[in-house]
């Protein structure tokens, strides 16, 4: 749209600038606080000028929260959740779009409904299952045959426990489904004529074509997994499996301790970094994957 409206332009720029301040303001606050000393950070009103204690604060946060192993745990679980989601969503959308089974709509809507049931809502049943994975199977076998099995698999305090319950994704399935539906049917038919079986078609044709989609999904899902707090907090009782988000909790001052917000903010800054890097690197693909489909 080409219009000459200098006043309107000025207003839009002003609103955009305001938005930018609103988004960047808190970040600056975290950064400023993380550079100040205990006394400086507790002055009222808050002083937005950075201080000189940055490195000291970073070091204190790193040691107190034992951030080294925590960041490693977070990285491992986030990468696993991310790749799990990207793969499972691609496969389930493939099944929903390309196979004419009579129940596929039922399955699609069931997947879709889980959008309304995030982990926070079903956290207790999920915990039950994670604590005893084969409970439903044992129950089923016992009611059907009367045989009592002693199958046990406990996911608490393990990477699989941190990762598996987070892998199913309705958003991802939906994203892939929409993309697959834009591809002409003839593509699948041509592959069929060329002799490719379904899995071959999926790997040779669908996956390369959905590359931008995959990267977009990977970006969102990495950040999502990185930011998980409730589930890792519930799942892990051993310090070995603590994730960065959970470790962060130890840096937040409580009522009896010193109000060392400068150190909490330094910790927050460190924990924020990996998702920022991922978004910065994949940002180009992220926008492309959500906005348009490659021709």
């Amino acid at each position: 749209m080409i219009e000459r409206t200098p006043i309107l332009n000025a207003v839009t720029y002003f609103i955009m600038f305001l938005g930018l301040l609103l988004i960047l303001g808190p970040f600056w606050m975290i950064f400023a606080a993380s550079t100040q000393s205990l006394a400086q950070v507790n002055t009222v009103p808050f002083n937005f000028v950075p201080g000189a204690d940055f490195l000291h604060n970073l070091q204190a946060a790193w040691q107190r929260a034992n951030l080294g192993p925590a960041l490693f745990n977070s990285l491992v679980t986030s990468l696993l959740v991310m790749s799990g989601k990207v793969i499972v969503a691609a496969l389930s959308a493939f099944a929903i779009v390309y196979f004419r089974s009579p129940l596929r709509h039922v399955f699609f809507w069931m997947v879709f409904l889980t959008l309304m049931l995030p982990l926070e809502v079903r956290v207790i049943p999920t915990y039950n299952i994670a604590a005893d994975v084969f409970a439903p199977v044992r129950w089923l076998i016992q009611t059907l045959t009367g045989i009592e099995l002693s199958l046990q698999w406990n996911l608490l305090n393990s990477y699989s426990g941190l990762v598996l319950p987070l892998i199913a994704t309705a958003t991802g399935t939906f994203l892939y489904r929409q993309f697959y539906m834009t591809l002409p049917d003839e593509l699948a038919e041509a592959a069929k004529m060329d002799g490719a079986r379904p899995l071959r078609f999926f790997i040779d044709i669908l996956l390369p074509l959905s590359r931008t989609n995959m990267l977009a999904l990977a970006t969102i899902m990495f950040v999502y997994a990185w930011n998980q707090y409730l589930w890792p907090k519930l799942m892990t009782t051993e310090a070995d499996y603590q994730t960065a988000m959970v470790a962060m909790r130890t840096l937040v001052p409580n009522i009896n301790s010193l109000p060392e917000w400068n150190i909490s903010m330094a910790g927050a800054l460190i924990i924020m970094l990996p998702p920022l890097i991922v978004v910065a690197v994949l940002q180009r693909w992220f926008v492309r994957g959500l906005v348009s489909t490659e021709k």
Binding site: E186, E189, A190, M193, I205
Partner: peptide, 17 residues
């Protein structure tokens, strides 16, 4: 289809992009 020994040319060509 792969066992029938036919090959097909489609209206919209259906090339792998």
């Amino acid at each position: 289809p792969r066992d029938r020994g036919c090959s097909m040319v489609f209206q919209n060509y259906a090339l792998y992009p």
